Simulated assay, not measured.
Amino acid sequence: MEIQLKFSLKYLLITLLIFLVEVLIATIWKDIFFVRAYLGDVIVVMLLYTFVKSFFRVNNEKLILGILIFSFLVEFAQYFNIAEKLGFRAGSLMYIIIGNSFSWIDNLCYAVGCLILYLFVRIMKKEVSTSNS
């Protein structure tokens, strides 16, 4: 995978917006079951995507696949209580970021988020090529 360093203010602003939504989900919207249990996991892969795109020019499809694999690895690490094994206290920021409970549904949410990202990238690529014709 060819990676080039390139700053993108557009992607950084989108990253900050998605991060704000994630904070709202974790704090204010935490009692809305569907939002807390599923939507946060769907959009966290989008947060990772836009964060990487803020600083690097990289193949979109490979990046999405890499994020999906990374998300699965983090989720499976939760099965083995990795946050505790790394010495993070319950309630600490890193403990919350890494997570503490494995769920197959979370993996499904990550896959849905990556699929949405992939479809969006494909549609945008098609629109750009059509407008350039």
Rank of each mutant, 00 (worst) to 15 (best):
M1L: 12
I3T: 10
I3L: 13
I3D: 02
Q4C: 06
L5K: 13
L5D: 03
K6C: 13
S8I: 03
L9Y: 13
L9K: 10
L9F: 15
K10N: 13
Y11T: 06
L13F: 11
L13Y: 07
L16P: 03
L17E: 00
I18Y: 07
I18T: 05
I18L: 08
F19V: 03
F19C: 01
V21E: 07
V23G: 04
I25Q: 00
A26H: 00
T27C: 05
T27F: 11
W29D: 06
K30A: 09
D31L: 11
F33P: 14
F33I: 14
F33W: 13
V35A: 05
L39P: 09
L39Q: 10
L39H: 10
G40K: 04
D41Q: 08
V42C: 09
V42K: 09
I43K: 04
I43T: 07
V52D: 15
V52I: 15
V52M: 06
K53W: 07
S54I: 02
S54C: 03
S54G: 04
F55M: 03
F55Y: 08
R57D: 13
V58R: 12
N59Q: 12
N60W: 12
K62W: 15
K62F: 14
L63M: 09
L63A: 07
I64L: 03
L65T: 11
G66M: 05
S71N: 06
S71D: 01
F72I: 11
F72N: 01
L73E: 00
V74C: 00
E75A: 00
Y79R: 04
Y79P: 00
F80Q: 01
F80K: 04
N81R: 06
N81L: 10
A83D: 06
E84R: 11
E84Q: 13
K85I: 01
K85H: 00
L86R: 03
L86P: 00
L86C: 03
G87F: 00
G87Y: 01
F88K: 01
F88L: 03
R89C: 03
G91S: 11
S92T: 07
L93R: 05
I96S: 04
I96Y: 02
G99I: 04
S101C: 10
S101T: 15
S101D: 10
S103R: 06
W104K: 09
D106V: 07
D106F: 00
L108H: 01
C109Q: 05
A111K: 03
L115E: 04
I116H: 09
I116M: 09
I116N: 08
I116F: 09
L117T: 07
Y118H: 08
Y118E: 06
L119K: 12
V121L: 15
V121M: 13
R122D: 12
R122K: 15
I123P: 05
M124S: 12
K125H: 13
K125Q: 14
K125V: 12
K126G: 12
V128L: 14
S129R: 14
S129D: 15
T130E: 14
T130W: 10
S131A: 14
S131R: 10
N132H: 11
